[in-house]
Write a protein that binds this DNA or RNA. Sequence first.
DNA 1: TTTATTAGGTTTTAAGTTGCAACTAAAAAC
DNA 2: GTTTTTAGTTGCAACTTAAAACCTAATAAA
Lengths: 183, 183
Amino acid sequence: MDKLTENLAELGTGCSLPISLEVIGERWCFMILRASFNGVRHFEGFLSEIGIARNILANRLTRLVEAGIMSRRPCDHDKRKVEYRLTDKGADLLSVIVAIRQWGEKWETGVPSNPVLADAKDRQPISRITLRAHDDRVLGLDDLCWIDEEELRNHGSGDAAGDTDRGDMVVRHLKEIGEPSAA
Amino acid sequence: MDKLTENLAELGTGCSLPISLEVIGERWCFMILRASFNGVRHFEGFLSEIGIARNILANRLTRLVEAGIMSRRPCDHDKRKVEYRLTDKGADLLSVIVAIRQWGEKWETGVPSNPVLADAKDRQPISRITLRAHDDRVLGLDDLCWIDEEELRNHGSGDAAGDTDRGDMVVRHLKEIGEPSAA
DNA sequence: TTTATTAGGTTTTAAGTTGCAACTAAAAAC
DNA sequence: GTTTTTAGTTGCAACTTAAAACCTAATAAA
């Protein structure tokens, strides 16, 4: 294992991605969430909207409720019915769903999905999700790098202009990631 | 099936989410992509970084290549090795991964993930992903609604100030989706 | 008020997927 | 030319999924 590979292995620790995926990475989960965002609230509603099997739906709803992403409560006016809703934690997944959807529009379907998520105020579709710097500048792949927590503590401010790679420090520019144009 | 439910069922058609999930919704897929973003390029690299089984990894890499998300090519200098890289299509999934990661930081781990994705220019961490209006205003759940493609064509411009629900039009405010504060 | 229907599950069973360990084949190193 | 490395494949047991039938409580219809 060379130095770089050793650094790269480190990159895995302390990332919230695997933990998040344990809950939301399961099959059907995003489809259930989408239906929820669309206003579906009842078992049979999810069933007919999504095309999932009954037992799997029951299982997934239970898991989403356990994870605190959805809430479950029997209806007052009709006690057969149960109301499933997004909690704040679940509602906060909207940006993830929108990001996936926008990616799909661009690379899979080629056309905007319907219905469109829009600004309620002026009824214009929302813009594309972008990565931004702390001062709101839009950042592309070439403008990004991974930096280690430690550097943030040590060099927190001070040498903010550097574009130089320093020795064994875990700093990698994301522009190196794509396919090589000339190699 | 009442009018609302009928409308809601319509909401499923023409959405790119299910199509996208067919490719990127599979187990391990995001972990492979994350490793890729971290600079991992070879079979054994993914294997040791992710903790996935050999056969599953082989299967997933094949599928990602088929989907145009990763590229595969044998190395020139060592023909045993194969180089897997993100294509532009794959690299464009960064915002999805960042969105999931930020959600996990907020709701699961409670602490920022390491390493941090930062602006290469000033080395400051990127800001939280937000949904924005066409004019760049940050939008919260309460500021959003679903609107039908058709409305965009018909009312495209003209009555841009409305906050009124019109009859059977597919317009739903997202603030209605959360748990009821008083019910 | 019995009877039928609806809502939200559980159970059963077949089919498919995962994960581990052992094996292979080609290229490179010794 | 023997060993090691890299990227796979194969075989098998354990687990997960999906479809269909079944169950129970609550409501609506006769």
